[in-house]
Write a protein that binds this DNA or RNA. Structure first.
Lengths: 114, 114
DNA sequence: GCCCATACTGACCTGGAGGTAGGTACCTGA
DNA sequence: TCAGGTACCTACCTCCAGGTCAGTATGGGC
């Protein structure tokens, strides 16, 4: 999704974090490095392919760091870069808002299954 | 998109604000009520159908308020509710992050057209 | 020799968000 | 009488993010 230009900061941020599972991935990395398998378990519902894909995109955006340990069986650890940490911090108020109004949102969704 | 349950606050928020143009709409409503036509001009690229659709969803989530003036030609004004104002405030840090790193993001996108 | 686990890759397919294009109703003003 | 402006609605279509499933390399354990 290579946009021409961003009309404001927020859609630049969304371009980075807009994947279906990316915020969940960031959240899972909040407290330290995680192995691929751990992430898969921590983000229930992702397929392997998409998890890898989104991790690669986050890596390309320099949000996460990928460390490969040449062992057998292979071990790969993902962690947040400084940029990733700052992004996570910027997401916190939105997360707090969501948590505060979660019940309200869910009740809306039940009434109107769109 | 009626999800069963939200794993954390952030994906509840994303469920509300996840439409392609919703944050831009919120942003456009930041400083007061706007008419439908104004919004269409302020959010370049949206089709009428989708703009209406997303406005209706935001209305159902009680993020925006829709005021109809029975005039001819018709006039309809959209404005943020208290909940909408709080959501907008929660988005501000993310917007600031995006603005701060916009150049970086754009350069990544140019190199890797995915 | 065979299976196990990990962390992938690649081909193929599908659902649904979003885009396109036409139509509606209303009154005004020329 | 007919174009003009506003705020919609509806049917149809496209496209791609994401999902499914199969396959790969490696070495250890039995």
């Amino acid at each position: 999704m290579p946009k021409r230009a961003y009309s404001c900061g927020i859609d630049a941020a969304i371009d980075v974090v807009g994947g279906k599972w990316k915020v969940l991935i960031l959240w899972a990395l909040h407290d330290g490095a995680r192995r691929f398998g751990e992430l898969r378990r921590m983000v229930p519902g992702v397929s392997e392919k998409v998890l890898i894909q989104q991790l690669r995109e986050l890596e390309a955006d320099e949000i996460v760091h990928r460390e490969v340990y040449r062992e057998v069986p292979p071990r790969v650890e993902y962690s947040l870069t400084a940029l990733g940490v700052s992004l996570n911090a910027a997401l916190e108020p939105l997360s707090a808002w969501g948590k505060r109004h979660m019940a309200h949102i869910e009740s809306m969704r039940e009434r109107q299954p769109v």
